[in-house]
Simulated assay, not measured.
Amino acid sequence: MSEFLAGAEAETGSPDAIELRLAARLEHLPIIRSVAANLAIRADFDLDSIADLKLAVDEACSTLITRAAKDALLSCRFLLHPNEIRFSAAVLSPSDEEPSRDSFGWRVLTTLTDSAESWVDGASADGRGCWVHIELSKRKIASG
């Protein structure tokens, strides 16, 4: 089991952590975008920040889905902090390459978020591939 999933299980009891596990298919993107938008609305993010988070989550998940092994699950986790939402996603991939930081998609992620990271874990226990991760954060704009 990846550290991502182990960490998510450790936080299951927290009301500030929400996890989704879906088949790694592009048709599931609207579900994940809707959750991101709903959480940002409830956290009182401004409209531009809500749109930015939705687009960034969509890009991160799209990137991972296109790398997914056949019949893989996409694991997504939202961590809610008073002024920030952190989003992590991981998928089992037959490739051990992390997403390119020179791609247009990566530029979208770094433009729309306050931070974005990606990495690859070693081979999975069943030998089907490696876990590819993307984590991003979006902070609430200070009102004043």
Rank of each mutant, 00 (worst) to 15 (best):
N83H: 12
L29D: 08
D52T: 02
R101M: 13
R77Y: 03
S34Q: 13
L73Y: 10
D48S: 11
A40P: 12
D44V: 06
D52H: 15
P82L: 08
K54V: 14
S62C: 01
A68V: 07
D102C: 01
S75I: 02
L79D: 13
I41N: 06
A72G: 03
A37M: 06
C61A: 14
R25Q: 13
D52R: 15
K54S: 14
A43L: 13
P94W: 01
P30W: 10
V57S: 07
E27K: 11
A89M: 04
R101K: 15
P82N: 09
D46S: 06
L39W: 08
C76V: 15
A56F: 05
R77I: 06
A89T: 07
C76T: 14
R67D: 03
P99Y: 04
D44K: 12
L55Q: 13
A40G: 11
D102L: 13
S34I: 00
P82T: 11
I31L: 15
I65L: 09
V35E: 02
A36R: 05
L80Q: 13
P99V: 05
S88L: 11
I41C: 00
I32Q: 04
L92S: 08
I65A: 06
V35D: 03
V35M: 12
A60C: 05
V91A: 08
A68H: 08
L92R: 09
T66F: 06
A36M: 07
I85P: 04
D46H: 11
I85W: 09
I41V: 14
T66H: 13
V91M: 02
I65V: 15
S34Y: 05
R101A: 05
A40Y: 02
A51H: 08
A37C: 04
V35G: 01
D44C: 01
A90K: 01
S75A: 13
A51K: 12
E59V: 05
D48F: 13
A36T: 07
S95M: 01
F104M: 12
C76S: 12
I31W: 01
S103Q: 08
E59I: 04
F104A: 13
L47E: 14
S95C: 02
P94S: 07
N38P: 00
E98G: 11
A72K: 06
S49Y: 11
S75Y: 12
S100F: 08
A72L: 09
D52A: 15
A89N: 02
L29E: 06
E84M: 14
L80N: 03
S95L: 07
D71C: 02
A43V: 03
E84I: 02
I50T: 13
D48Y: 10
D58C: 01
A37V: 11
L79W: 03
D48A: 13
H28F: 12
H81S: 14
G105V: 11
A56D: 03
L74C: 09
R101L: 12
A40H: 05
S95N: 04
A89V: 03
D52E: 15
F78E: 09
P82R: 06
V91P: 02
A36W: 07
E59A: 07
F87N: 02
S88D: 09
E59S: 09
P94F: 01
I41T: 08
L39F: 10
F45H: 06
L53N: 12
D48H: 11
S100A: 15
L55R: 11
